[in-house]
Design a protein around this nucleic acid. Structure first.
Lengths: 234, 234
DNA sequence: CGTCCATTTGATCAGGGTCAAGACGAGTGG
DNA sequence: CCACTCGTCTTGACCCTGATCAAATGGACG
């Protein structure tokens, strides 16, 4: 029964306006969680018993179709909530969450959700805002899928990943977790073959630099040009 | 300054647990709205000054890309809220809303949102549940776009439309508002040409029956078979 | 009756999926 | 330390789905 430190969460927007006493109460209900790379925090269709806050690492949110193919819905970075299905009136998780690297998280039983909403100022507003921005994000990607070519979608995905989950290096902005061609294919609705060809072409032009499960965006601007690229579908 | 009748909204889940006095207060703040077919209730990017409740009709929610092509994000039926961007921390509308037929709606200034949330029991829960189900819906469509063939997507779109916005007739379930091949193309990320060919083939097989801007699903079951259809991608 | 829009249908062609094979690297066990 | 194995990545060849281009038909409505 170790005591979690308030500093873990005190700086997050989510808890910014909470009183120290409330933070302690929040932490008292939390279960710390270590997840090794590749294992699931929760599985699609499973009963939504908990919601989570990712403290460190990166998580891949994946939907699997009845036919068996997978789509990566989004990546979660440290500081974000995950598994908040319960907030939306669901009682099962709509997707699986897989640790892309070793992760540290806090877990709360779903039963605590209402009390968080009721008692922590700003908690409801912040999480619903999160849900709202995710809705927007997914809608934007739907529009992309409907109107853009594969090349543009891949360019946009890389740009977004570098932006959101990148770490600046001398070579450029490197995506901060291992990511395969297959992963990018599952984000953009294409095949690893096509992704491989596209990335090879871009690496040749110096726009990105690669490696095994590893991508660095060297020239974000030129990547964006590719993303805007092509003529519309009319 | 006509008095709106409580019965307009009393039966909606949204206001089910509100007291009559509260309903009157809600209606007092509302502005009734008639929208003729084809005109916009609000426009993408415009300041979100109001939120709406559709009382009668059908509304098309459309996103337009910088390149100029459009995607139909969803259709709204009577009884649903629309323009609730404000609830999600936005101050502009993320899409345009176009009346698919002549519509009747109520409009409230966005400034009233917080008081609705605070004072009407169940209002917050219901709307956030709505947002949650829309998020799920869009995610499901993203997965479809990423993994399915055009034929399946079109089949699924028709099925969904007939299900959600259909009216039973002796010939089958007819989609309750005028809808063109172009519309279906914009829902499924394809072209009106391809939609026309697919629908012609299905009409020949007796699965659907068509007309100008008008579709009846004769055999939903066979449509679903088409939607499941094909082998997965990989 | 003329105009406009929705729809149909044919012909062509290319983006990118599928199939196939091999190269490269990393981790594992002997 | 090396051989082996497994998973990632690359690359070529082929072909299919569905976009594009083009044109005609048919209603609906003023």
């Amino acid at each position: 029964m170790s005591q979690l430190d308030r500093s873990l969460i005190a700086t997050l927007p989510l808890f910014r306006s909470a009183h120290p006493a409330e933070l302690d109460r929040v932490l008292a209900g939390a279960r710390p969680l270590r997840v090794t790379k590749g294992t699931a925090i929760f599985e699609q269709e499973a009963e939504a018993h908990s919601f989570f806050l990712l403290l460190d690492g990166h998580i891949r949110v994946v939907k699997t179709t009845p036919a068996g193919d997978q789509v990566i819905v989004r990546y979660i970075s440290a500081g974000e909530m995950i598994g908040i299905a319960h907030a939306l009136g669901r009682d099962t998780y709509p997707a699986s969450a897989i640790a892309a690297v070793d992760c540290v998280a806090l877990a709360w039983p779903s039963s605590l959700w209402p009390s968080f909403v009721a008692q922590i100022p700003g908690f409801a507003a912040t999480t619903y805002q999160t849900v709202g921005s995710r809705l927007e994000d997914v809608q934007a990607r739907l529009v992309e899928m409907a109107t853009e070519q594969v090349e543009q979608r891949v360019a946009r995905a890389l740009h977004r990943l570098a932006e959101q989950s990148g770490r600046q290096t001398e070579a450029g902005r490197r995506i901060d977790f291992p990511i395969s061609r297959q992963d990018i294919a599952e984000m953009t609705g294409t095949t690893l073959h096509t992704v491989s060809r596209l990335l090879a072409a871009r690496e040749a032009r110096g726009i990105i630099a690669g490696g095994r499960q590893q991508i660095t965006v060297v020239e974000p601007a030129r990547l964006l040009v590719l993303a805007e690229g092509r003529a519309p579908r009319g």
